[in-house]
């Protein structure tokens, strides 16, 4: 018997694992802003390649989280997006501790006024009303501004006979606005119902993560519900469920593919194919198509 190395069963250090996902350089030779390591497969990717690949890892298909503006530029035809209610800002209506500070921080982090960007756009030449939630603003949480902007957009679409396309990403209702944020669930769903009763199309694309009060309202009100691969989608967050039932959740639970299997998602569409998919879908719902 030869000598066994002392650390035979110890997992060797993988230097990439300790790197900050987005900011740290993966190689000392390349400046940090030029490359990124994939949090899923740890492949080192050039930022420029990632940009071209719609921020999807070319090695493993991991969908990187992107902000609302990036998404709009991927989906809307060049120069077609006209933003609505861009300056609407949240106020601390119930004097919740530290909420003002949180809002300021969220603004600095996301350069966005709140957690959704709304406007009109063309997708593959087809006009629509488009909302895209902003994950970097308080994790896309829904307060009164999110509820109000989405409601206004849907009402505008109803008035102008436009389809609505919405991208969701959210931790749920915004606790800091108390009951007022809960009421936005009813408000947005009511607007969707009126839009639907007018015979108009509403398409939702669920992205990672979509949970809580957003899942229990306008995210699940669509005529067509799409999801990005591996997106976490649920009512209760996985940690809350684990604490409630005191057992570990099966792998893949609450992922896009799981919801697809259970019958709650029409199709799982990778980011790079979404624009083409939406274009076809919108074309099938034009009046001329009938």
């Amino acid at each position: 018997m030869g000598m066994l190395p002392k650390n035979l069963f110890k997992k060797p250090n993988n230097p990439l694992e300790t790197y900050d996902k987005y900011n740290k350089s993966a190689s000392p030779d390349i400046p940090s802003e030029m490359c990124v390591s994939c949090p899923n497969c740890h492949a080192v990717l050039l930022s420029s390649d990632l940009d071209e690949a719609c921020h999807v890892c070319p090695k493993c298909g991991h969908h990187f989280r992107i902000n609302a503006r990036q998404r709009i530029s991927m989906i809307a035809d060049d120069g077609s997006f006209e933003e609505m209610d861009a300056s609407m800002r949240s106020r601390n209506m119930i004097d919740f501790p530290n909420y003002d500070k949180k809002l300021k921080h969220a603004y600095l982090e996301s350069s966005s006024r709140d957690a959704v960007v709304c406007g009109t756009a063309k997708i593959g030449g087809f006009p629509c009303a488009l909302f895209v939630m902003e994950p970097y603003f308080m994790m896309g949480s829904m307060g009164t501004v999110v509820g109000e902007k989405i409601t206004r957009l849907i009402e505008y679409a109803t008035e102008h006979s436009l389809p609505v396309v919405g991208y969701t990403v959210s931790g749920g209702a915004r606790m800091q606005e108390g009951i007022l944020s809960l009421m936005q669930m009813a408000k947005t769903s009511g607007a969707v119902k009126r839009h639907s009763d007018a015979g108009l199309l509403y398409v939702v694309v669920l992205t990672d993560p979509t949970t809580g009060g957003v899942t229990a309202s306008f995210a699940m009100d669509g005529d067509v519900t799409l999801a990005e691969p591996n997106a976490l989608i649920g009512f209760a967050g996985p940690r809350v469920i684990e604490q409630t039932i005191r057992q570990k959740l099966p792998s893949g639970f609450q992922r896009a593919e799981f919801l697809y299997e259970k019958g709650f998602v029409d199709a799982v569409v990778p980011r790079g194919q979404q624009k083409a998919y939406l274009t076809t879908l919108l074309s099938l719902h034009t009046k001329e198509a009938l």
Binding site: M185, T215, A216, S217, M220, D221, G234, F235, K262, G263
Partner: peptide, 14 residues
């Protein structure tokens, strides 16, 4: 979750 808690509530709201 498997049976769509979020979807069930959303439908009631609508």
């Amino acid at each position: 979750e498997e049976r769509g808690q979020g979807q069930a509530i959303a439908e009631n709201l609508m």
